[in-house]
Amino acid sequence: MLRKKASKQQIRLLKTIVFNTCLIPFLLIIWDGFNDLLGADPIKTLHVRTGDWALRFLLITLLMSPLQRAFNVSLPIRFRRMFGLFAFFYASLHLAVWLVLDQSLRVDHMLEDIPESPYIMLGLLAYLMLIPLAITSTKGMMRRLGKRWVELHRSLYLIAVMGVVHFFWLTKLDDTEPFIYAVLLAVLLLFRYLTNKKINKL
């Protein structure tokens, strides 16, 4: 009994540590902002850095269930929600930079720009699709939705694909970075496909 309680505390401690670690990129951005370290085009820097972290956390979130399956441990799954919400957090910042700094909250400008920019359309759509996942990320929702929860949250793969395509479309010439994300995502998708096949066979 005592042991189990201790392990619960350990997990809580671990969660605190991980949570604060996930905040570091955000704090660094704020720090750089206040110290005038965002460079010649600070809005672009903010855009790139929040977008990078949104994508990274999407991939980290998608890594949790493969880790669980590969090593047969339950620990990663306990962190999946936190990582997912951090992906949502950084994606929200990314969107806020566009709305407030890039577009200066001018709805008329947005309505002009959106139809002319396929990558903005795709990014907005991906963000909208993230919202229901964030809302239904609680344990209570998971219980209430049951099987449908799993189906709904599978859309995260599609959202990640959209995020990577969004990155490709806004890149001018050197595709190295989005390509790296595409490869990582492909590995995750492939792993899921292969292990699902196995389970179906069983």
């Binding site: 010649a40 600070p42 809005i43 890039d102 400008h109 002009e112 720009d113 002319e116 920019s117 396929p118």
Partner: peptide, 22 residues
């Protein structure tokens, strides 16, 4: 005439403050 992937209607002025509109 938009670029096929982005609008050309407005431009960001390099060296302007964070809250300066395009």
């Amino acid at each position: 005439v938009p670029h096929p992937r982005w609008s050309q209607r407005r431009e960001r002025v390099i060296g302007a403050s964070l809250f300066t509109p395009k």
